[in-house]
Nucleic acid binder design. Structure first.
Lengths: 237, 237
DNA sequence: CGTCGAGTTGACATAATTCAAGTAAGGTGG
DNA sequence: CCACCTTACTTGAATTATGTCAACTCGACG
């Protein structure tokens, strides 16, 4: 958390200690466990400290749409803080460590840490953009390009947290989960994945995915890394 | 703007006068005109005062995805305020009146009007939810259900601004625009539209759309009105 | 009166889904 | 260590939803 912000802004001592207080009480969930169920009163959000998680909603026919895949450093359930009840489910993709914090703390941020509030506002706006990017990808791209988009999205976000990542990473999503992110069936996701491999754009050994032709994936999917376009210059001092 | 907020929160004199200063300099755009082009420096956002507008992005093959349809009272281009440059295009669907305001004002909001800042934060989070809803709709629903979703979305949001709206409204989107919102071709949007009419769920005379079977559209699309689920109780005083 | 933008319709092509069968890897108990 | 599950994944064949292309209608407008 604090690490991520420090890349962009000089934090004060007070700001840093506040952020550290957020992650004081970590708790663990195992793979597949529900971290936060839709319908429950929206009293807390979480910092994802370690592992992968996902936000999704269920449909009556048994299918689900994964709205967002989360990586370490991400905040979970923030959108629901505006609502009386959680409207999305959050589940652990791998075993995870998360740190819950109470909604009441948000009021404190806006009163006492206006700059942190503004930064959270910015991240919320960035999310609106990237949600739009994913919406557009699902709406306009063919299935293969949607898989390419997903790969680029995961790769760039993992890189942002760990600059040592080159073109290989461990993929924790199953084919079914990939299909639930990209709006297709698991069978078709599997086929498109195979095509990307047979074209040489990607390869895969166990869970380790290697991206061989990043420009091709970008061209195919129109992916843009919005995190590099953020502008913190207007923040209050 | 101020009207919309006053429904939820008792605004102070200072807050109201600040909000009124935002809309002091309205300007006009005609149907089809670009209000804000992607790529330009992100120096201002807008209050949409009158008419319909849309946020969209273009694809290399000439197709476009409409990410959001905007109605009077909405803020335009807020997501881009987090970025160095606008990443989305905004176009007037009908003739519109908008009021531009400078990005620098946002810093002032966070410093001097923490509660307004918190409210804007909440709306941003609500947008993340509704973006997820639309993402899910495009990812999981069949074409007819996506059209139903669009109709419910438009109807609900128009109602929120004008409580006199029952089940009829003037639809300013062309078939092509509907298809660009819902991720399909204009031809197919036209067919699904016709099916909804022949089933009796909807009827249409000129641009006036009447919703006859709202429960059916909701059941078909899984639409939820998130605005009714907002909770302002945690706001700073 | 002709033109233009918007919408509709039919015939056909293609992308994606569905269903079903089968393989492979990892975990568990004997 | 092996036999047996379970879960994840792959592949083929048939079906369906959606896209594509082209022709045509209709009303608005100069």
């Amino acid at each position: 958390m604090a690490d991520r912000l420090k890349r962009h802004v000089d934090l004060s001592v007070g700001e840093i200690s506040f952020l550290e207080s957020l992650v004081a009480r970590p708790s663990r969930f195992v793979r597949g466990q529900i971290i936060q169920a839709a319908g429950e009163p929206a009293q807390q959000a979480f910092v994802l400290i370690d592992g992968w998680a996902m936000t999704f909603t269920d449909y009556a026919d048994g299918s689900r749409q994964i709205r967002r895949v989360h990586f370490p450093g991400d905040l979970l359930a923030m959108p629901s803080m505006a609502m009386a009840r959680h409207v999305e489910n959050i589940e652990a993709i791998t075993d995870v460590v998360v740190a819950p914090f109470q909604r009441g703390l948000l009021a404190k941020v806006f009163r006492e840490h206006p700059r942190l509030a503004a930064i959270q506002f910015m991240y919320a706006q960035e999310e609106r953009i990237t949600y739009g990017d994913r919406l557009s990808a699902i709406g306009r791209l063919c299935a293969k390009a949607r898989i390419a988009f997903l790969l680029m999205d995961v790769l760039t976000r993992l890189r942002a947290a760990d600059s040592s990542i080159g073109c290989a990473f461990e993929m924790h999503l199953t084919r079914e989960q990939m299909s639930e992110v990209t709006g297709m069936t698991p069978v078709h996701a599997s086929r498109m994945w195979s095509e990307l491999i047979s074209e040489g754009a990607v390869s895969c050994d166990k869970r380790i995915v290697t991206i061989h032709d990043e420009p091709r994936l970008v061209a195919l999917s129109g992916f843009a890394n919005r995190a590099t376009e953020l502008d913190f210059s207007w923040l209050p001092s």
